[in-house]
Design a protein around this nucleic acid. Structure first.
Lengths: 188, 188
DNA sequence: GTCTATATTACGATAGAC
DNA sequence: GTCTATCGTAATATAGAC
């Protein structure tokens, strides 16, 4: 019981630190310090740094699935759901301006490190891609849906990178408005 | 003479390694090994890692200015110049698929590290932004030009992040085609 | 300008007591 | 399950010989 709670605390702290500082720049001491644990005890729960990354990605995948399910129930129409995704850059605007997109920055970092966990990080993107594709498939012929899903995904990444680089909230708003206009052409 | 040549070699090697592996993941030994220099001698040329980063960014700024000037002479029309920028994601497609955008990934990394050289890295983006704005100012009213410039910049970053994550050249092609269509609406 | 040798620190990881 | 103590390695950086 207690063990599971500690493990969860470690994963949560690592998740946040990996996002805010990056994976490589986060040390065991950082995570242990945040949780209030000694470095030695750390290895009882996770035997390597990669093992923590694995757990963090698994947690993010689970959280993402939960979020997407919630959006399904909250938004009645496919365009409403797609718009819900588009507006993350506003909803999470402050975090994105400081730390970038949690999915995009992790993928970028692991790609440069040529890290073994690259493909699992890509799955985070794939979750959104597939979900967006399903929404578009309700609006356009099925063979166009994936292309449009990738376009919306690219929008989110472009906005996130520049939002972090320039720290310009107005830019984000303008891009969301432009995306709203683009999207309206596909609404039945 | 010889000293300047060695310094140049160091900056070139560091530039490439920072791009391919990331700044933090690149060690002095990596750079020294590439140039064929001992670590000790290294500090004769650069007294710290930050000093190398500074020199690398300066070199990139100079290279970027040169590239933009070249595009000015090569392309007679503003739309041709903007398109030349848009097509970088194809021209440098292989590198971007492997290492991402050199400007975007550096900005993302330095932002997470909260690095002192962040603002100088941002200048790389600003060079492209200002240049694109000037091109758009020849096509649309001046007050719209910066918004459109940022949109094109966001396009390049979105495509670069997803190109690296999914390693999908077809996606890049489709996005460039879409951008060509978008751009044609602004051409006189 | 270039080298070897070394100081120093931080990190990932292990051993073993409690 | 948690702790302290410690090892090995790699990285930044310095000192001093040639």
């Amino acid at each position: 019981m207690r063990g599971a709670a500690t493990r969860e605390q470690i994963v949560e702290a690592a998740d946040r630190l990996f996002y805010q500082r990056g994976y490589e720049h986060t040390s065991f001491a950082d995570i242990a310090g945040t949780v209030g644990l000694s470095r030695g005890n750390f290895y009882y729960h996770f035997k390597s740094k990669d093992a923590i990354l694995d757990a963090v990605i698994e947690a993010r995948l689970a959280n993402t699935r939960r979020t997407l399910e919630q959006w399904e129930t909250e938004q009645a129409t496919p365009e409403g759901r797609i718009l819900r995704f588009v507006e993350i850059v506003l909803t999470n605007g402050a975090d994105i301006q400081q730390y970038g997109c949690p999915v995009g920055t992790l993928n970028t970092e692991l790609a440069k490190l040529d890290h073994a966990m690259r493909d699992q990080a890509q799955q985070l993107f794939t979750l959104f891609r597939d979900w967006l594709r399903e929404q578009f498939a309700l609006l356009v012929p099925a063979e166009q849906a994936d292309d449009l899903a990738m376009h919306v995904l690219a929008f989110s990444q472009g906005v996130a990178v520049l939002s972090q680089a320039f720290r310009d909230e107005e830019f984000v708003r303008r891009e969301v408005d432009r995306m709203r206009g683009w999207l309206s052409a596909y609404v039945k």
